[in-house]
Write a protein that binds this DNA or RNA. Structure first.
Lengths: 481, 481
DNA sequence: ATACATACC
DNA sequence: TACTGGTATGTAT
DNA sequence: ATACATACC
DNA sequence: TACTGGTATGTAT
């Protein structure tokens, strides 16, 4: 009787939502200062069949990134769609997209009601906040963002001349990490599964990853960076920020020439090309480094007018931290450029959290951190492996054991310990579920990780197995604060 | 085996903390704009025996509020202590105080380490935030806070002349809501149990509450308020804010004279006295209304210098929203006055959340809301009753039934519905525990409340009964957002 | 504290 | 046949 | 979402 | 004999 009432009112227990998002490739970055990595959600409307390809997750694979000019985008989309449409992966993407649509619709409802309101009282408050941001502007540093061109692919080409001038990618049949520019002309790019890339370009050569080699080259270029800024920050094997302000004080050279020289040294010592952006802060430098890619550089002067003229017409999507989802939300609000962010600051203020508002405003003003020297403290350490579907708990425990051993070894290397363990299961339908547990004392041994993980799996075994057996397990070791 | 590991790492489940705080009396307020009602925690050090009386919850009963000047505070403390020391209530207060001590100690650790640091880089950021607050200052309104003097007690005296000039209080043997000024001279005050008050003043006359009468008088004074500001906001039966700016435009009178006139009309029509504060905003008006109590008023000019000179030497405890606990935290940081808040803004910024920082800074600048007209939306509706200890679940369900019926009737009057039900149990040792449940659909009927409540009790029955049977049940009906 | 989403390489 | 692996951070409950 | 603390009348 | 009843809001998990 009571439980009838309870069920009919549906206690908020164990509700299920959807999965995760796409990813790119590579490794080793120091992910920081790239703004809020989460902001509400959007999506297309009906999102049936080809529509999804057109304007969402999968469609993005055929977007207008570098190297895709002049090719038949529609044809690329069509081929990707044909190769994907009945896969579990694609079905899951569709599901996620539908969830997104619902949330976007709700946001738009709020937005429409906002447009009808008189927001003049909020205006001055918002303008105040913009002024506060403006006061953070600091034009006293020259920051450089350097990014190797098609890093892994270029290394492989360099070391095997027979690969040159042919469409080629690094990775394997299930996932590519990098493609060279010839391959990009076919629509082949990173984060694309190799078997789909082959449909786009049957003559594509796929070279397996050789991380030891990439790390060695990375070490070379980092040595070069340190000549110009001993406190440079590497963001990944092929990318770094430099503050060359002090270096410039020691010589009589323009920033442009210094960066030319860095890129020249890189080329001389590695036979590889790099692109660079030069600007007043990391945000702008990063945006700039993409502009004259490959093998080019772009200088944005440390001058408010130049910065504002540069950023105003820029697509919001160019802002690191604004991805596919956030771009779509903004687009729905008719905000396509950074200038429009500023113009719509009152709506942005009402629609988003204060931290998102600050992120958007600072980006649209071209204001960002110019602190390059960082003593980065790792916040989590994780390991994951994809394996073919399992159906017996014991098989899963065995995988857990392997991952726990591996993770514990990694933790030991850095003398890390933590209090929270998260396990992510990827089901065969590509749905991801995460379960985490916090303990009172710091732990780090494989046994501790395994035992806690086993308990977590055991408790959730019914959520995992019956749905459809799992595909992969990600153990994340999280150190909160 | 696994569960051994798990236990030894102590999963963070079902940990128990401590209870609740003291309260005053009366009813009917529109609690708003009184700042963050929570900020970390502090306490004394050893807190043994009489120490607790001296500097904590119970000691506060004998504090230096209006009416207590010139009496022997030490003697009052001693009598309260003797009357309390072995009670379950007092034991619980001691427990809470110990928990507080631990947390305060931790805060001080952080504070000490902060003092050793060079905080110059944060300085300008904090100064910016202070400027942002300063820009909110608005001196264009004249706000009045009116507060009846010893409201319930004065009404009883008025209606029964034999009570006059004798120590008297309103309430009952277990709890007093108001005391007259004669009684206050003995240390008798609101929120004190009657039986303890009798120890302080054996000849004390205790008159039972007569809410219907108080409500009728409240109606009278509200009618007067509305003559001066039709949009006045009542905060309780005996207290209100008025914005007399517009009224002043219609006549040629000073604010002081207008408020004299309001108080005169109150006295003429009710034979009761009121005190008032007149200032640029609600925060300041409220502080001012306490200054010339009883039967007086205080005007603070709408002028930055006057406001700053007024607020600078003011004890932080005078700020509504800073209670016993927060005062203690601040005192530990050597912050006793509002001026000291400003002087220590960088430490405040580092020690507290941004919302607490903003609250402190605005208070210390004398900046507050001057919006009186509010269409207040109720966020919760609750009912609670104290009853003697029960030990059978069925007895508790029966109480639940009564409270649910009552609450549902109240909800119906205001056409309210909600999605969350909270039940608070007060155990015989005065420990309070809360358990809440959210449901998906809005509910409002007694049956729904009862059934959900019963389920909640059922699930937690082992947490309640074995500990020591419960004393009272508070059902709160919460409407989130 | 948990679960999940977004984003970057 | 077949859609990774790693880290950070924001939002919602 | 849940549990609890602080604060006000 | 005996320490309320009501509402809001902040913090921590």
């Amino acid at each position: 009787m009571e439980s009838d009432i309870l069920d009919s009112h549906g206690f908020l227990i164990g509700e299920e939502l959807e999965g995760d998002d796409f990813h790119y490739v590579e490794e080793d970055q120091k992910n920081e200062n790239i703004g809020p990595s989460s902001i509400p959600y959007p999506s297309s409307t009906g999102s049936k069949n080809n529509d999804l390809i057109r304007n969402s997750r999968i469609g993005e694979l055929a977007s207008n990134k570098a190297g895709l000019q002049g090719i038949d985008k529609e044809k690329v989309k069509q081929i990707i769609y044909e190769a994907s449409k009945n896969s579990a992966f694609y079905l899951n993407e569709e599901k996620k997209d539908e969830a997104l649509s619902i949330k976007l619709k709700q946001m738009m409802k709020k937005y429409e009601s906002l447009k009808k309101q008189n927001l003049s009282t909020i205006n001055s408050k918002v303008d105040n906040l913009v002024q506060v941001a403006e006061r953070e502007r600091d034009l006293s540093h020259i920051i450089v963002h350097i990014d190797m061109d098609a890093f892994y692919a270029s290394i492989e080409e360099r070391d095997n001349p027979s690969l040159r001038n042919k469409p080629m990618a690094v990775g394997d049949n299930s996932m590519l990490t990098t493609s060279n520019y010839e391959a990009r002309n076919y629509g082949v790019r990173s984060a694309m599964p190799g078997f789909i890339a082959k449909k786009l370009c049957p003559e594509l050569i796929i070279v397996p990853c050789n991380f030891d080699k990439y790390r060695a080259v990375s070490k070379q270029i980092r040595e070069i960076f340190s000549r110009y800024d001993p406190d440079y920050t590497p963001m990944s094997l092929d990318e770094a920020y430099l503050d060359i302000t002090k270096y410039l004080d020691t010589i009589d050279e323009s920033p442009d020439n210094v960066v030319e020289q860095i890129r020249r040294e890189i080329h001389e010592e590695t036979k590889l090309t790099a692109s660079a952006g030069i600007a007043a802060n990391k945000l702008l430098a990063k945006i700039c480094s993409d502009l004259n890619k490959p093998n080019g550089q772009y200088r944005l002067q440390n001058n408010v007018d130049d910065i504002m003229n540069f950023i105003r017409p820029l697509s919001v999507r160019k802002i690191p931290g604004i991805g596919r989802v956030t771009e779509r939300i903004l687009n729905e609000m008719d905000i396509k450029t950074c200038g429009a962010i500023l113009d719509n600051r009152v709506y942005i203020h009402q629609m988003f959290s204060s931290s998102s508002f600050n992120f958007f405003i600072r980006a649209a003003l071209g204001i960002g951190s110019n602190i390059v020297k960082t003593d980065h403290k790792r916040k989590s350490k994780s390991i994951s492996r994809t394996f073919s579907s399992l159906s017996k708990p014991d098989d899963l425990y065995e995988k857990l054991r392997e991952l726990a051993d591996h993770l514990a070894a990694d933790l030991l290397k850095e003398r890390l310990q933590g209090k929270t363990i998260a396990i992510t299961f990827k089901l065969v339908n590509f749905k991801m579920i995460t379960r985490e547990r916090s303990v009172k004392k710091y732990i780090h041994t494989a046994d501790d990780i395994y035992n806690i993980g086993k308990q977590v799996i055991f408790i959730n075994i019914n959520r995992i197995i019956p749905l459809q057996t799992f595909e992969s397990t990600l153990i994340t070791f999280i150190n909160r604060f």
